[in-house]
Design a protein around this nucleic acid. Structure first.
Lengths: 194, 194
DNA sequence: AGAGTAACCGAACGATCGGTCGGGACAAGG
DNA sequence: CCTTGTCCCGACCGATCGTTCGGTTACTCT
């Protein structure tokens, strides 16, 4: 029998360390030696838990993508006026971004050098497209100003939301997440409705 | 005498090629072999024009920073109501971002692994701080809504503007730059004034 | 034509890259 | 006790990294 032992790494707990280093140095700028040092084990020991560097990246971006796509399956994102669904999705995106901060950060920085990275970019584009349709529908229903092109507005809104990973750092304050989400919704939606 | 010859690389024309590759593969993900292949010369020839990989990075981010800091020296950024100065700076930031797109793109992706990168990050923070003060003054003069914290708003606005480098690609249309600048100003400033 | 030099090249440098290998320490189950 | 499997290690692999070096080509100027 294999009773799980304590004080030892699992693929997930190792991933937690790896993602942090990836975000500090960049994926390409991080060597397995860097990971080993940060994890406190030898380089070769890492390969006991995961198949290699790219699997760590794949696990990380998968987790981020699951969080984001999960939003679109939630009922408030599927029912009601498009403008209301859009507001819900924007708010939830901020929440997921913050809840899964290091993983989403890594996802938003992939460049496309490997197969895994290109797959991540493709899934991201898919998600962006789904949200863009929401905004398009809101415009068609007359809840969004007509003088700003929808594609342009989508990109700017995504830019604002995604930029959160560049500066948000968790603190003790409860409600900090809600405060950020409120600010984004205010800025984006009053700007769009204006 | 040394008359400059045609059809040969200068440090600047080589930089142009290098920055494009850096933006496609990431700085750390780009080898000197990649640069040599893209430039159509051998790896060792690159060292005839520049001292090494890091000088290319330094030249690129310097050019981007000069463009951005130049905005703050322009008269409309220095005189008048803070809200008007802010609008001017936001609009010019978009214009400079687009005019110097590849260089600013590289600047915004710097991670801080080398001395040059840390210097670039520091200058960026300095610029952000200057613009943040503009927004703070606009709030003090009553031209910006009070229910969104200034630091938070600054970051979101920067996020929206900086995200342009992630999707804007030059096309033939004249006025495309102005269109983007208008959209950003509309979204940001009506959102802030709302 | 000859001198000088800018531009370039292939080969090789030591260092580091991601990854492999054989084996040791240790705990659990018989 | 001994086996079994987890977890980890140092040593090492071929490949690639950024950079250096000696030398060749080709153009400019006198």
């Amino acid at each position: 029998m294999t009773t799980p032992r304590r004080d030892t790494y699992t693929p997930d707990s190792l991933l937690q360390v790896a993602v942090q280093v990836f975000n500090e140095r960049g994926y390409d700028g991080t060597s397995m030696e860097h990971l080993a040092k940060a994890a406190g084990i030898s380089k070769s020991s890492i390969y006991h838990h995961v198949s290699g560097k790219e699997e760590l990246l794949r696990r990380a971006v998968s987790r981020a993508l699951e969080g984001l796509f999960g939003i679109l399956d939630e009922p408030p994102a599927r029912e009601g006026r498009a403008a209301d669904r859009l507001e819900y999705v924007v708010r939830r995106m901020v929440e997921v971004l913050i809840a899964e901060l290091p993983y989403v950060t890594l996802l938003l920085r992939v460049r496309g050098n490997t197969g895994t990275e290109r797959w991540a970019l493709e899934r991201r584009r898919e998600f962006d497209h789904r949200v863009a349709e929401l905004l398009k529908n809101a415009a068609a229903e007359g809840d969004v100003r007509g003088d700003v092109e929808v594609r342009l507005a989508t990109r700017l809104v995504f830019g604002m939301i995604n930029s959160i990973v560049e500066w948000y750092r968790p603190d003790g304050r409860t409600g900090a997440r809600r405060e950020v989400a409120d600010a984004v919704v205010q800025l984006v939606l009053t700007g769009l409705r204006g």
